[in-house]
Amino acid sequence: MDRPPPGERPKKKSGRRQAEPDLFEAVVPAANSTTAVRFAGTDNPRYLRALHALLLRPVPREHLDRAAGCSNGPDLVSNLRDLGLGPTGLPCTFIPDRDQDGKKIRRGVYHLTEAGRRAVNAWLRLRDRKAGE
């Protein structure tokens, strides 16, 4: 117990109980934490094929077109982002590459982030649970 310095009176305790500080008063996310992503889900077979390809590995736009069966992958990705994945859950990374003529290009590669992958998997589990009822 701490004693007051000599010559000072000890502080009296009031009869009131002091409010304890809240442990979670000012929650600040860690610098390396991920942003929460909530995927609303879809019944569109084209979107489901695209999600399946994205769950397997990062895919360039051309591969996404073939896997989903469409000719406008960026629009498909935009629609998936509108369903809740957003650019946080489904970003496009530009990779330096060369085209068939040898010119330098930046190839767009779509991939699910960890937050996007968790959101899609959570939606799939929920969908499977509802289908089993």
Rank of each mutant, 00 (worst) to 15 (best):
residue 106 R to I: 00
residue 129 R to I: 04
residue 114 E to D: 10
residue 111 H to C: 05
residue 89 G to Q: 05
residue 119 A to E: 09
residue 132 G to E: 15
residue 127 R to D: 06
residue 129 R to W: 06
residue 88 T to Y: 01
residue 91 P to G: 03
residue 83 L to Q: 08
residue 119 A to G: 05
residue 108 G to A: 15
residue 115 A to R: 05
residue 112 L to G: 00
residue 108 G to P: 06
residue 113 T to Q: 13
residue 114 E to S: 09
residue 132 G to F: 11
residue 89 G to E: 08
residue 84 G to K: 02
residue 83 L to P: 03
residue 92 C to Y: 11
residue 117 R to H: 03
residue 86 G to E: 07
residue 91 P to K: 05
residue 99 D to G: 14
residue 106 R to T: 08
residue 99 D to V: 11
residue 115 A to Q: 02
residue 83 L to W: 11
residue 87 P to E: 07
residue 106 R to V: 08
residue 122 A to K: 13
residue 106 R to N: 07
residue 96 P to F: 05
residue 107 R to G: 04
residue 114 E to N: 02
residue 103 K to I: 05
residue 116 G to M: 04
residue 121 N to C: 09
residue 83 L to Y: 04
residue 128 D to L: 09
residue 131 A to F: 04
residue 97 D to A: 14
residue 107 R to F: 06
residue 89 G to R: 05
residue 127 R to K: 15
residue 94 F to W: 10
residue 130 K to E: 13
residue 112 L to R: 04
residue 113 T to W: 13
residue 115 A to G: 05
residue 109 V to N: 06
residue 97 D to N: 14
residue 130 K to H: 13
residue 101 D to R: 12
residue 95 I to K: 15
residue 101 D to T: 10
residue 127 R to H: 15
residue 133 E to G: 15
residue 133 E to F: 04
residue 101 D to M: 09
residue 100 Q to P: 07
residue 114 E to A: 11
residue 102 G to V: 13
residue 108 G to Y: 02
residue 119 A to L: 14
residue 114 E to R: 12
residue 121 N to F: 07
residue 90 L to R: 05
residue 128 D to M: 12
residue 131 A to R: 08
residue 110 Y to V: 14
residue 111 H to A: 13
residue 81 R to D: 08
residue 117 R to N: 04
residue 113 T to P: 06
residue 92 C to W: 03
residue 121 N to Y: 00
residue 121 N to D: 06
residue 93 T to E: 10
residue 105 I to Q: 04
residue 99 D to W: 04
residue 103 K to Y: 13
residue 111 H to S: 12
residue 105 I to H: 11
residue 102 G to T: 13
residue 110 Y to N: 14
residue 107 R to S: 02
residue 87 P to M: 02
residue 116 G to E: 01
residue 115 A to N: 00
residue 121 N to K: 10
residue 98 R to L: 10
residue 124 L to P: 05
residue 129 R to A: 15
residue 125 R to G: 08
residue 125 R to N: 12
residue 96 P to M: 01
residue 86 G to K: 03
residue 108 G to R: 02
residue 129 R to Y: 09
residue 86 G to R: 07
residue 114 E to V: 06
residue 125 R to Q: 06
residue 85 L to R: 03
